[in-house]
Amino acid sequence: MARLIFVAIALLTMGQSMGQQQYVISQYMFNGLVLNPAYAGTHESWSFTLMTRDQWRGIPGAPSTQTFTAHGAITRSNESSVGLIISNDTYGAIALNNLYGVYAYRMSFDRGRHHLSMGLQGGASLFNVDLSQDDLIDPDDPVLNNDFSSIMANFGTGIFYNGPKAYAGVSVPFLLNNRLNQSEDDLSRQVRHYYLTGGAILPLSHDVKYKPSFLIRYADGISDIDLTTSFLFKDVIWLGVTYRVKNSIDFILEIQFTDNLRFGYSYGLVTSELGQSTSGSHEIVLNYRIKKQHPRVNHPRRFR
């Protein structure tokens, strides 16, 4: 049964009916650069983030994702920032690796309390299909033995606003609909993904803050919505729950160990029919920030 699921995923990915190809993450509010290039520089310091996600544990060939991002300002006024995105996304015999550079320009308003950033990213993706490592139902079927790889250049853009109590962003990380297989007979292509994010922070008391947020993904007529509610205790511990509509419920824990180091973990409980075959999804995020020499920071760490 698991192999049938894998074959179905592989054929849907390579066929004309292209759905959402980009990886899904639960802790999007703490790893914004993978969704929006305009996010670069918002941490007010150089920031490095590692993320690993094990999706649908228990199903052979289920998606597995790893990302590394780095970003920070390159001017004293923080107007210009650069970043780097490296990611590895595999499911079954299919692998997608990305390497992208990022540039963002930020404008400040109201004496530096509000910022509007515009970002660009550019780079290349390596798409690879290797069916030789999997147990196929019919190893002589030519459709299931069509290994190939392709390198695709692409670019994307985004806009991001952040202030002392709210943020919002819209982005299209990959604008080109590249052909996945260079063969003229293969019509499968990359699908353009649109992301809309937003959130706010509302103090409930001196030690407790409430932060609602959302993420909307749209691609090829398919949309996903993440609705998150979380609480911050003493600027150190985040506890949150995300409802991915008709898909999963994710429980999130974030701990600010020091001014520089943050750890995050989320567990996703699948609510769709797929939940009968998996024990859930696990995601770990580790963020390290290089502290600035001067102490003034416009937005405290509790916001991002």
Rank of each mutant, 00 (worst) to 15 (best):
20 Q>L: 15
168 A>S: 04
8 A>C: 06
174 F>P: 03
223 S>Y: 11
253 L>S: 07
29 M>R: 11
282 H>S: 10
84 L>E: 02
300 P>D: 09
255 I>K: 00
100 Y>K: 05
32 G>S: 11
232 L>P: 01
269 L>R: 10
208 V>G: 00
256 Q>G: 08
277 S>G: 02
117 S>F: 05
17 S>A: 11
268 G>A: 05
82 V>W: 04
1 M>E: 03
279 S>V: 06
130 D>R: 13
254 E>D: 08
207 D>P: 00
113 R>M: 12
242 T>F: 06
126 L>T: 00
276 Q>E: 07
136 L>G: 02
206 H>W: 01
266 S>M: 08
227 L>C: 02
13 T>D: 12
178 N>M: 06
108 S>A: 14
172 V>W: 09
113 R>C: 02
242 T>I: 11
32 G>A: 10
261 L>V: 12
140 D>K: 09
262 R>K: 15
224 D>S: 06
164 P>S: 06
243 Y>S: 07
59 I>R: 13
60 P>F: 15
242 T>C: 01
253 L>Y: 06
177 N>R: 12
258 T>N: 09
123 G>M: 04
16 Q>S: 15
65 T>S: 13
76 R>Q: 14
136 L>S: 04
94 I>W: 08
196 L>N: 06
13 T>G: 01
10 A>I: 14
54 D>P: 00
148 F>I: 12
262 R>E: 05
174 F>N: 10
271 T>R: 05
274 L>K: 03
238 W>K: 01
63 P>F: 14
70 A>L: 03
277 S>V: 08
220 D>F: 02
116 L>M: 08
107 M>T: 07
52 T>F: 05
72 G>E: 10
199 G>S: 13
171 S>H: 12
151 I>R: 15
177 N>C: 02
206 H>I: 02
296 R>T: 09
55 Q>M: 08
300 P>G: 11
154 N>D: 15
256 Q>C: 08
147 D>F: 10
201 I>F: 04
45 S>W: 04
296 R>I: 13
177 N>H: 04
87 S>Y: 01
275 G>D: 03
157 T>I: 11
96 L>Y: 03
10 A>K: 13
162 N>D: 15
158 G>R: 13
173 P>E: 07
